[in-house]
Nucleic acid binder design. Structure first.
Length: 420
DNA sequence: TCTGGGGTCCTAGGACCC
DNA sequence: TCTGGGGTCCTAGGACCC
């Protein structure tokens, strides 16, 4: 058996290019919420040394000089393309695991086809390109970790590998690992890299040679597992059923800084309401809620406060959660401070039917029907058709800026492109 | 002036129990 | 001077990922 991981090349940029041919062949970046930083770059933009997370205001010059094209992020479009991408993978393998918005694992071999793993991988790439229009790369290996490394190698030397790297062969692994920096290995971040350096571990080969006990000593059991996986020993069980969501968060930077209690309360109410929508969509209720407010971390002495509360009984009712969030804002607000961000976290999510009830709480028997009606209206007529009054009305200065967003080409009737 | 958002897993340490 | 030995549960915070 083997693992495969497919990732979409420069996904957000590739998605924008799919519907706007003028973006081909020129440097393109897609921006974070509030149009703040570059979070996706075309190859041309990478060649101009635009790094992941570079703030736009610091590269105005380069943007003008090289005509770098910018787009606000369009998650409606990306989510829909991701769904199509996974549908194609599903045609090839019954066992797929969605890992992120632009990557999915799947298991090989795919029996009926009779093709080898590498040939199957090429077929999957060709089908995704033809049916969805997105370029991809695939890594293969006996463990998830090895397939991720293979995928990174395919990415690093696109021309050499033609989009597919297979790391089943131990000799090939030995050769490639000797020149693969340890910091590039999936699961090794800055901190672990720094802790491994004194031990003389600088390459993937040296990491793979580390005795498991040493690995656990330097890091945790996670690093020990990583070392085993690098040697081809599987440590992570395959999960057919996706794990249920455990926590969720809705946190946003403000379009304009907020100094006013009422505005802060409204901004928080919008995030809280959105968080409850997310969990209701999966039929979950939350056991714990946290709300926080913050000032800019780039300024001296920014305000930063949070409050948490246990929800008993667990709930997804926006009336309860938005109400609590409002009271928390009142408790946290300090007059004269400048706020740039706030958010709501819902934690310890459980299926709504299985939630522990509270002996002393009085539940509103009409709530399920009310919330179902509310979600139904918003699904049919668009988000925020029906909201709580405490969320305020209309577009506000504190809402996220998205000045350069492309249309929702594939998910809104009004935005569907017209062919002439 | 302007710097994203959303997840998971693990450990240490405190509180509490017998 | 001497000062037990385990447990569990919870939370905050660190580290990693995309």
């Amino acid at each position: 058996m083997s693992w495969a991981i497919v990732d979409i090349s420069n996904f957000y940029v590739s998605a924008e290019r799919l519907f706007d041919p003028s973006l081909h062949g020129v440097p393109v970046i897609v921006l974070s919420n509030n149009d703040g930083c570059a979070i996706a770059r075309s190859e041309e933009a990478k060649a101009l040394h635009v790094r992941m997370g570079d703030p736009v205001f610091k590269m105005r010059d380069r943007i003008r000089r090289h005509g770098i094209q910018m787009r606000s992020s369009n998650y409606e479009l990306y989510a829909d393309l991701n769904r199509r991408f996974n549908a194609v993978i599903g045609e090839h393998s019954g066992t797929t695991e969605i890992y992120s918005i632009d990557e999915s694992f799947f298991r090989l071999p795919v029996l009926p086809s009779g093709l080898g793993d590498v040939a199957t991988a090429h077929q999957v790439r060709a089908d995704i390109l033809r049916q969805v229009g997105l370029p991809t790369r695939i890594g293969l290996g006996p463990t998830r970790t090895l397939s991720k490394v293979a995928n990174a190698l395919a990415k690093a030397s696109e021309k050499v590998w033609n989009g597919v790297v297979d790391l089943h062969d131990e000799d090939l692994r030995r050769r490639l690992f000797q020149v693969w920096p340890v910091g590039e290995v999936w699961g090794i971040g800055k901190a672990l890299e720094a802790r491994l350096r004194p031990l003389g571990v600088r390459t993937a080969a040296e990491l793979a040679a580390l005795p498991p006990a040493t690995a656990r000593d330097v890091g945790t059991v996670v690093l020990e597992r990583l070392v085993r996986e690098l040697n081809g020993i599987e440590c992570d069980d395959f999960q057919v059923e996706p794990e249920a969501l455990k926590n969720t968060a809705v946190t946003r930077q403000f379009g304009e800084p907020v100094r006013d209690l009422e505005e802060l309360r409204q901004a928080m109410a919008r995030r809280a309401a959105r968080a409850t929508e997310k969990i209701r969509a999966q039929d979950l209720v939350a056991t714990r809620m946290i709300a926080f407010v913050q000032g800019s971390r780039f300024h001296r002495d920014p305000p930063s406060q949070s409050r948490s509360v246990r929800l008993s009984p667990p709930t997804s009712d926006p009336r309860a959660i938005v109400g609590l969030a409002g009271r928390m804002v009142e408790a946290m607000f300090e007059p004269g401070k400048v706020y740039t961000k706030c958010g709501v976290l819902l934690e310890e999510l459980v299926p709504s039917g299985k939630a522990q009830t509270d002996l002393f709480a009085v539940e509103d028997p009409r709530a399920p029907a009310l919330l179902a009606a509310m979600d139904g209206l918003n699904a049919r007529f668009g988000r925020d058709t029906l909201t709580l009054a405490s969320q305020g009305f209309g577009q506000q200065g504190f809402d996220t800026k998205r000045a350069m967003k492309s249309p929702s080409w594939t998910t809104r009737l009004s935005d569907i492109p017209v062919a002439r």
